[in-house]
Amino acid sequence: MSDPNWVETASGNRIHRTSRISGKKHIIIGGQTTIESHCKLSASTENQCSLSIGKCCYFNTGVELNAVSKHPKGIKIGPYCFIDKNTKVEDGVTIGNRVRIGAGCRIGKGAILHDCCVVEDGVHLFNGFVVAPFSIVRNKGKNVDDDDDDDDDDNDDNDGDTFDVLEVEELDPSVKICNEEFVKHKLLLG
């Protein structure tokens, strides 16, 4: 009955065979966590534990957790987190409990996401950014740096650097419940 594409560990973690995990000895996964296909988990071999993941997390296809840059903190992810497709998490990131991160995000070095946060699709979270509990982070699009003192409409592309603009809002505490339900259903009901 069991699917040959999946590896199931003693603590109930399910890892797809196409996912690549390096530095296995330095990774702790809490149990009942699902890692979908083509994920990349890399841990630095210098730390005792540079990548720790709580129980009942769900990582969708193509998620990358990169803890190899010798950041003293490594990556910590709390229980009941959900990370959607092709999201990259950089070193030194701390993610609390029940955090939901959308598809195609990048969580910058040393960022801290407190419990019950939601990060919408396509957000590039700044390095070292702190997100308070029960917050939602949105991408407000890109802006062009036109730091010219004379406000002429020169369309010199080489002058302007584009940068991301974010928006942080407070979230209703009820999301905690919805998040838990979501992960539970993903696990049991497919």
Partner: peptide, 22 residues
């Protein structure tokens, strides 16, 4: 515990994707 949670899932929507649910 998961063994307890799974009991609360109606048979009609219970999948066979995990060891626990099987």
């Amino acid at each position: 515990k998961l063994e307890e949670v799974v009991k609360m899932v109606p048979t009609v929507i219970l999948t066979n994707y995990t060891k626990q649910s099987r």
